[in-house]
Every structure is written in structure tokens, then in C-alpha cells.
């Protein structure tokens, strides 16, 4: 049986989501930031895949008869940049929280404290 790109992409998105959710559910802020980053990747690829998968069909006019759907690409392009800004914001939030509370536990207090 041939493996399809669609299968690889779908399962890849699922796997990265699973890893991201697991990390988001950790109790320390840094893994949560990484989890958010992972979910960001998964969501971006998911939205991108809304336009279906195309090979050798860059959305440049005059590049050939068949071109990929450009709209999800445009949406995802800004999403990547905003995702980066969010990561930056959250890591700095984690830093501030650690500085204020003396712990990097997400609730701002050591477990059992």
C-alpha cells in the first residue's frame, strides 16, 4: 500500500497536537510555552491544509496551469508571525511570573505550598 502525503500530514498534525496538549498540561511555565509553540505549528499546518495539498504548484501566476490555493497560505503567513509574537509574550510573562512569585509553577506557588 502506498502511503499518501495526506496521511502523513494529517497524522503529523495530530501527533504534534498531542505533544503540545501534553506539554501544556504540565505544571511549570516553560513546558507550557513549548506546548503552545507546538500547538501553534499544528494549527498553522492545519489551516494551511484547508487549501488541500499540492506539489509543484506554487501560487505564482504564470507558473503553470495548476496552482495551490493561496488564501490559506496568506492567512497562515500572518499567523506564523503572530504566533511568534505570542510565544515571545508568553515567555516574558513566564519570566515576570517567576520573578514575582519566586517559582515557575503556573499557579504562582510551589505544589503543596
Amino acid at each position: 500500500m502506498n502511503v499518501s502525503m495526506e496521511f502523513l500530514v494529517a497524522s503529523g498534525i495530530g501527533w504534534v497536537t498531542a505533544c503540545g496538549v501534553f506539554l501544556m498540561l504540565r505544571g511549570r511555565s516553560f513546558p507550557v510555552v513549548l506546548g503552545l509553540t507546538l500547538i501553534g505549528y499544528a494549527v498553522n499546518v492545519f489551516i494551511f491544509a484547508m487549501g488541500r495539498l499540492w506539489t509543484g504548484a506554487q501560487p505564482i501566476i504564470g507558473n503553470g496551469e495548476v496552482v495551490a490555493d493561496p488564501l490559506p497560505q496568506a492567512l497562515v503567513l500572518t499567523a506564523i508571525v503572530i504566533g511568534f509574537a505570542t510565544t515571545g509574550f508568553v515567555i516574558e510573562l513566564a519570566l515576570r511570573s517567576h520573578h514575582e512569585s519566586g517559582t515557575d509553577q503556573v499557579d504562582g506557588k510551589e505544589p503543596g505550598a
Binding site: 494529517a10 505533544c19 501534553f22
Partner: peptide
Amino acid sequence: LALAAGGGVAALAWLMLTRDHSSIS
């Protein structure tokens, strides 16, 4: 929870990717 979430997202992506789409693009 993570595997359920990932499995759900994968299933959705798979269902979607195996269908043709119409687009305003």
C-alpha cells in the same frame, strides 16, 4: 487527553484532506 485531542485533530484533517474543496481563492 492529549492523545484524544491529537487523534481528533488528525481525524478531522484526514477527513478534510481526502475531500475536494471549493474556494473563493
